[in-house]
Design a protein around this nucleic acid. Structure first.
Length: 683
DNA sequence: CGCGGAGACCTTTTT
DNA sequence: GGTCTCCGCG
């Protein structure tokens, strides 16, 4: 009963609808160039495809899958691994439009999804119960912070926050570097309290096991351990997957590449696709050498390069190539454009944040007149908070937009509250969920919640617990207890359970506690709709944890989205494309990020990020740089334009400025090479 | 012991 | 501007 293809198991399966009835094969010639055809028709064995931006990577991969299916490979034996949910969903969608026949099923997903499925099957082998709960980032932080707070009080040295500790631990695990060593080299600030930090990380691991919780890294670490220590599991996986295909390979870390090699087996049919110039995830352990040394590890590997760019007009490509050429470490690729000339990218100087926002909004309205839909445009930035002014401006002008980063839908308090009720229904001893829910009861705070939790953990009777609950909180506690009892009956669907929580007090709580309660209730309705797709709560909850990183609209909305503008971090924009792209805040300290460039290789990674941003654009590219900082506590400081702008050939872009009708607030025209350098890159 | 107010401190990127 | 922490009141 090993393996993922077992029907009825919690395997993520997409049933493909017949798209092209009767068509027996796909017209590859029409859609692909010669190089791509070679890849699609390449025989079995290891394949490495190095492909530049806009070269039709995903399309090639998709057609390869189509081709495999045509040649009779059962869909259940094809595993398509991608880095992100979004990419995985999009690729599966593409495949589904290509393959005729309603019998086709394809298993695909992200590393974390597949890891989750494998571990649920074999959890006992790594010391877990199979009904473990997945910790999302915020839960993990809470757990870690709890452990760290002990040291924070009695240590003279500043003890890192939970978030920082998680990052250290996560990086250590994903790269295989010992935490002690990591702290000495990458986090020297904590050198003196090294032992304490390492000890806390260990306690965190122990605590997770106690509570039967796995965080995102466990899904990889334990999967890896499972394959390494249990040959029977490994062999079963080898047999299961006849073809393993990995997209965005440049972003895999050591654990992931080893897992891939393990489940594929020594002579398996592995195909990896990636672009080293777009490696932007080193902060989470992405390992550059995975892709560079692939031919070494697989001497029989066939290597293909895709160097034709179909996406962008030559001017945009010229600027992008010009920028990335400033990096030392890279495969040299000569990307060629096939599109006819369009127009040069523009470097736009705005006065301050507001002016920048107004420029973008204004320009988007104008683009509409030129025939661009809102969905043809995107605004990209380095960090979420860089889009605040723009969001306000767009709201003011009633331009519909979707933020694909920033506020994570499922991480909002009200959604986590409701999810906690469901978690308790699944696992009566879920400490984090209990404490969260308990604190919602009026007159119950940290201390009382702790007390009640202790008694629940020890299975004390209701009357015993009642005796220790303060008078003022008694009523609320009783209501909660009854509600939990009803949820635990497990006779309801997840959607009904959510309804029940709302009806039995949570809605009232929102109304009394928040001014924006209507919006919150609306969110929860959408959550309930989302839950309709799931028949059991466990599946819903693990999906929730794994997709919590996706901005809500993404996960909840049906495909018939309205025409709206996309706002996104550059990281999340990866693999996507738009006709017009705006990049905001191209100033020193923001893009490149002031902290990131202090790290080893940081500048080059930031430059790759800039490269990714620019190569998302098909027709128009606007690089915007305000000259006045907007931080409230640094009001009015002059900022320097980004080095990524300065270093470009002047011929690769056009210069532009923004001005108001109102002369007092209009920005002055200062070509950025003439501006004085400020000693601190933060400004 | 909960809770509200005052002040400190802060903001990378994500599965 | 927003969140977290600490402190003193009820």
């Amino acid at each position: 009963m090993d393996g993922l293809a077992d029907p009825g198991a919690c395997v993520k399966e997409y049933v493909l609808k017949p798209a092209v009835p009767a068509a027996s094969s796909i017209d590859y010639k029409k859609e692909l160039n010669e190089q791509q055809l070679e890849v699609v028709f390449a025989g079995p064995g290891p394949l490495l495809v190095i492909a530049g931006a806009g070269s039709g990577k995903t399309r090639t991969l998709t057609y390869r899958v189509a081709r495999l299916l045509e040649t009779g490979v059962p869909p259940s034996q094809i595993l398509l691994l991608t880095f992100t949910n979004k990419a995985s969903r999009e690729m599966l969608h593409r495949v589904s439009t290509l393959i005729p026949g309603d019998e086709r099923r394809i298993t695909g997903g992200t590393f974390h999804h597949v890891g989750n499925l494998v571990l649920r099957r074999h959890a006992p082998l790594v010391g877990y119960q199979s009904n473990f709960t997945i910790l999302d980032r915020e839960d993990a932080r809470e757990l870690m912070d709890d452990l760290a707070s002990r040291h924070r009080k009695d240590e003279a040295v500043k003890f890192p926050k939970g978030d920082v500790l998680l990052d250290i631990g996560s990086y250590a695990r994903n790269t295989g570097i010992a935490p002690e060593k990591l702290i000495s080299t990458k986090y020297p600030a904590f050198h003196e309290i090294k032992d304490l930090v390492v000890q806390t990380l260990r306690r965190y691991d122990a605590r997770k096991r106690e509570l039967n919780l796995m965080d995102f890294d466990d899904l990889l670490t334990l999967w890896h351990e499972l394959l390494a220590k249990h040959p029977e599991v490994r062999e079963a996986q080898n047999k299961l997957w006849r073809h393993v295909l990995v997209d965005e390979y440049q972003d895999t870390n050591r654990l992931q590449s080893e897992i891939v090699e393990q489940i594929t087996g020594p002579d398996g049919n592995l195909m990896v696709v990636g672009d080293d110039s777009q490696s932007i995830y080193s902060f989470r352990g992405a390992n550059f050498s995975n892709i560079i040394e692939f031919p070494k590890r697989h001497p029989k590997a066939k290597v293909y390069k895709l160097e034709i760019n179909y996406r962008s007009v030559p001017e945009i490509l010229t600027l992008s190539n010009n920028s990335i050429a400033h990096n030392e470490r890279q495969f040299k690729k000569a990307l060629r454009a096939v599109r006819p000339e369009g127009g040069r990218p523009e470097a736009v100087c705005a006065g301050d944040a507001l002016e920048q926002a107004r420029f973008v909004a204004q320009r988007i309205i104008d683009l509409k007149d030129e025939g661009f839909d809102l969905r043809d445009c995107a605004v990209l930035y380095r960090a979420h908070y860089h889009s605040m002014e723009l969001q306000m401006e767009l709201t003011r002008l009633q331009i519909p937009f979707q933020v694909r980063s920033g506020l994570r839908f499922f991480e909002q308090a009200h959604l986590k509250d409701v999810a906690s009720y469901l978690k308790i229904a699944v696992n009566t001893k879920d400490e984090l969920a209990w404490k969260r829910v308990l604190k919602l009861v009026p007159r119950v705070g940290k201390a009382t919640a702790e007390k009640i939790w202790q008694m629940i953990e020890q299975d004390r009777s209701m009357s015993e617990i009642k005796a220790s609950v303060p008078k003022g909180a008694l009523r609320g506690w009783e209501d909660l207890w009854i509600l939990v009892g009803r949820l635990r009956e497990r006779t309801k669907t997840p959607a009904e359970m959510i309804r029940l929580v709302l009806d039995e007090g949570y809605e009232t709580y929102l109304q009394t506690s928040f001014a924006n309660f209507t919006a919150r209730i609306e969110d929860l309705r959408r959550f309930a709709d989302f839950a309709l797709r799931y028949s059991d709560v466990e599946a819903l909850l693990s999906e929730l944890a794994l997709t919590s990183g996706v901005a809500g609209k993404d996960a909840l909305d049906t495909p018939d989205e309205e025409d709206s503008l996309i706002l996104s971090s550059v990281h999340q924009a990866k693999g996507l494309e738009w006709r017009a792209v705006f990049v905001l805040w191209l100033v020193e300290g923001k893009f490149p990020d002031g902290r990131a460039i202090k790290e080893e290789g940081g500048e080059e990674e930031e430059r790759r990020l800039f490269y990714v941003a620019c190569t998302r654009a098909k027709d128009r590219l606007y690089l915007v740089y305000p000259t006045i900082a907007d931080e409230r506590y640094l009001m009015g400081v002059i900022q320097r334009p980004s080095r990524f702008l300065k270093e470009l050939d002047k011929s690769s872009y056009e210069e532009a400025t923004v001005s108001y009708g109102d002369p007092s607030s209009s920005s002055q025209e200062i070509p950025f090479d003439d501006r004085q350098d400020h000693p601190d890159p933060e400004y």
